[in-house]
Design a protein around this nucleic acid. Structure first.
Length: 389
RNA sequence: CGGGGCGUAGCUCAGUAUGGUUAGAGUACCUGGUUUGGGACCAGGGGGUCGAAGGUUCGAGUCCUUUCGCCCCGACCA
């Protein structure tokens, strides 16, 4: 690519009301542009970053036999009524009607849809386990979208769903996915923790969150200094029976925890940190398979509800998390795995023919080697470091 | 959804208290020139339904009413 052909509208000034580094710098670097509250366009540089993240996720998913599918974005509301979530989700679920007045929803998550494509088709224990996922825009009509793409109404999420014939097999898959997710975040160059989490509204028996460590994170984590243990503070407080229920998530309590609490796994010291939730994995059990009638025949020819797991990873949120963790006063510092281009050839003085020729030559060579390169061939002064700064 | 703030040039914002010629700055953009290792300088230029609708007035960016949008704090969600 060459800068003279690149569309990356950079600015010196931050957008109105932006507070987070990722929001400010992604906007200023011309990666994203706001459309409406909680809605963003991804411009060429931002799109390249998203693709990089997607590629790494796809590679790691392939290794664990998860298969990518693409489900329709507009889904019949009937499925949501079947599972009972049409009411539960409430106003976050954006409802639309077609010309024939049929009701649909814009998918905020796809348990129902995924179960729907498996039920009636997968009928035997011999066809299990199965893990299907998709990389797709989700829409949640958040009451208060904020922080740029960190918490938008529309966001890109990779969501996987697994189907099993036993709890043991779900446990195995859950662990496999946890490892895969850790590998993904490591490859992306992120500092993160896996923490015990609340299963919340999605339901199920166990869940873990993948948290990128950043001061701007919305979640507070209790993490062990010596082992890998970590827990979302909400969960941690519930585990700790000794605490008086009346004063649960008070800040004073959190301070108390700082000094004297020990890790429940290795008795090391616990400390508090902030995290950005970029992934959440659940053991669902039969929460969705039962109401939606997703069954199989076991070895004895008996009908059983499938045991399910679900594994979400926020692609667009990861992009923001990278910047939250890696930035300086000049702007975005991409990690090796996420940078839109590996090499930026900056021709200092475009009128100096020797420089220009050298740069162009280098550009050709790197391109031939398949290295992602961009050349700054604009007739400008030195301030085009903007893009990286 | 409760509380607060803001909508004026592509962008960031003055101007509104106390209504009064032609609505401003910076930046960005176009032209010419000087520059060429850290968002240059000089000169000229284009660019506005002052968020929208209604009202008061001789006269509204400014006052009144309604409405839409965006942002922040909280609740909610994950």
């Amino acid at each position: 690519m060459r800068f003279t052909r690149l569309y990356a509208p950079t600015t010196k000034e931050a957008p109105q009301g932006a507070v987070l580094a990722s929001h400010i710098y992604l906007s200023r670097a011309g990666c994203i542009a706001q459309v409406a509250s909680g809605l963003y366009n991804y411009l060429p540089l931002g799109k390249r970053v998203l693709k990089k993240i997607e590629t790494i996720i796809n590679e790691e998913m392939a290794k664990v036999y998860a298969q990518e599918v693409e489900l329709s974005f507009v889904t019949p509301i009937e499925l949501w009524e079947e599972s009972g979530r049409a009411d539960k989700f409430g106003k976050e679920l954006l409802r639309v009607k077609d010309r024939k007045d049929n009701s649909f929803v814009l998918g905020p998550t796809h348990e129902e849809m995924m179960v729907n494509i498996v039920r009636k088709k997968v009928t035997s224990y011999k066809q299990l386990p199965l893990n299907l996922y998709q990389m797709k825009i989700k829409f949640r009509d958040e009451a208060r979208p904020r922080f740029g793409v960190m918490r938008g109404r529309e966001f890109l999420m990779k969501d996987a769903y697994s189907f099993h014939a036993s709890e043991e097999d779900l446990d195995r898959e859950f662990n496999t996915m946890e490892v895969a997710y850790k590998t993904i975040l490591t490859r992306l160059g992120l500092d993160f923790r896996v923490v015990e989490a609340d299963s919340g509204a999605i339901g199920g028996s166990g869940s873990k969150e993948l948290m990128v460590i950043a001061d701007s994170g919305e979640d507070t984590l209790a993490v062990c200094d010596s082992c890998e243990y970590g827990a979302n503070i909400e969960v941690y407080m519930n585990l700790d029976d000794e605490n008086d229920e009346a004063e649960v998530v008070e800040y004073t309590d959190i301070k108390e925890l700082k000094g004297d609490d020990n890790c429940p796994q290795c008795s090391g010291k616990l400390s508090l940190t902030k995290g950005i939730e970029v992934g959440h994995i659940f053991k669902l059990g039969t929460t969705y398979s039962k109401p939606l009638g997703c069954t199989y025949l076991d070895e004895n020819g008996k009908s059983q509800d499938m045991i399910m797991g679900t594994y979400g990873m926020g692609v667009s949120r990861i992009m923001a998390a990278v910047i939250e963790q890696h930035n300086d006063e000049k702007g975005c510092i991409w990690t090796d795995a996420t940078t839109p281009y590996k090499v930026n050839i900056l021709i200092s003085n475009i009128k100096d023919e020797a420089q220009l020729a050298y740069g162009e030559n280098l550009y050709k060579e790197l391109n031939a080697k398949g290295i992602e390169v961009i050349i700054d061939d604009r007739k400008e002064r030195f301030g085009f470091k903007m893009k990286d700064a």
